[in-house]
């Protein structure tokens, strides 16, 4: 194909220069993209890699420190035992009393070991309850906004308030639930359930808005196909639209759960504090985030250890949840895509 005699004549369209030079037109090895564009491409590629690095390095650093400081603390005892009440030095007096005396009066002089069981349970209860409240309401709200009342005033009002709620600082949600719920019941008002209410307020707008985006991605043709088969719009929502959007709904909801699990501010007011296990949604409770807060504040080594262990556990729980959600989502999209 190097025979120039075979090359086509340049385009002879009136008034136009040829788009490709005749010698280039049939030779795919010829470089026709300008040097400037090539350079832009290179620069943009390098810039993107830098951005990736800038995002990955801090993340890697956080995880490294977390594992270094937290992993060693976490063991079965840590996960299941009560939180030690004394995090300072055990009393110097212990040196002066005999083991027999300790045994007689039940004085425990062994140094307290780190434990986080109650906070793990409290986190699971408060976040789980919050998810159970916020996810169904959020998804139903999104279904209303995107499927039933698309252009109604109510739908735009819901969207508006959801957007405002996303911007409300989480501590305000805590104060709101504190005044609206906790104070009504006096000190008994503090509970995992109250914390769940505050966390649900936080999650609801996130779930709603992300679910709405996911529903919007479902093509209208599927809704029309349902109707053409004699289906009601509601049947289309239940049988076609929601299943098609399911993977997205799951990941959106999980993002909200992960966010709620790590929240401290709304929990501080509403959950009270306890150092021993409380598996009931009522009565004072505690969460990992709260324990990280109080453990990190203190200068005592055991308290700091507790905080790192709690941080590691919290990240592990959130990570495990994401992995689970991804697994469920990929399972359900496999059914759809074959």
């Amino acid at each position: 194909m190097t025979d120039t005699a075979l090359l086509p004549k340049p385009s002879t369209q009136p008034g136009f220069g040829p788009v490709l030079e005749p010698s280039q037109r049939t030779d795919v090895r010829a470089k026709t993209v300008s040097a400037g564009r090539r350079r832009t491409d290179k620069v943009a590629t390098i810039a993107l890699w830098c951005a990736v690095l800038a995002a990955v390095v801090p993340l890697g650093a956080v995880i490294t420190v977390l594992v270094a400081k937290g992993f060693g603390v976490v063991n079965w005892h840590f996960l299941t035992s009560d939180i030690p009440s004394v995090t300072g030095q055990t009393t110097a007096a212990c040196r002066d009393i005999t083991p027999a005396f300790r045994a007689k009066y039940g004085i425990n002089c062994s140094p307290p070991a780190p434990g986080m069981g109650p906070a793990i349970v409290g986190t699971l209860i408060s976040t789980g309850l919050a998810a159970a409240l916020a996810i169904p309401i959020g998804i139903l709200g999104a279904v209303y906004c995107n499927e039933i009342g698309v252009r109604t005033r109510l739908a735009s009002a819901i969207r508006f308030f959801a957007d405002v709620m996303i911007g409300v600082p989480s501590i305000v949600m805590g104060m709101f639930i504190y005044t609206a719920w906790v104070v009504r019941f006096g000190t008994n008002g503090r509970s995992a359930f109250a914390a769940a209410l505050a966390l649900a307020c936080l999650m609801l707008p996130i779930v709603l808005r992300s679910a709405e985006e996911m529903l919007r991605l479902v093509p209208d043709e599927l809704r029309h196909a349902n109707l053409a088969l004699g289906g009601r719009p509601s049947q289309g929502v239940i049988r076609v639209v929601l299943p098609a959007a399911l993977p997205g709904l799951i990941s959106g909801s999980l993002l909200a759960v992960a966010r709620a699990a790590g929240e401290t501010a709304p929990v501080l007011f509403t959950i009270g504090v306890t150092l021993s296990l409380n598996t009931s949604p009522f009565g004072e409770n505690t969460t990992l985030a709260q324990q990280i807060f109080s453990g990190a504040k203190s200068g005592l080594p055991l308290a700091n250890q507790l905080a790192w262990g709690a941080a590691f556990t919290l990240v592990a729980i959130v990570f495990g949840l994401s992995a689970l959600a991804r697994f469920v989502a990929s399972r359900s999209s496999k059914v759809q895509k074959g």
Binding site: L222, H224, A225, N226, A228, G230, V240, P243, A244
Partner: peptide, 30 residues
């Protein structure tokens, strides 16, 4: 009720993101 009796096939194929069987059985379920 009109569409129950007067069915339609569209210009572009619109299969549901479900199995082949579930697609065909869809109208029967409705």
């Amino acid at each position: 009720e009109v569409r129950r009796r007067i069915g339609m096939v569209f210009q572009r194929p619109t299969p549901f993101p479900k199995s082949i069987y579930q697609n065909v059985v869809y109208g029967l379920k409705l």
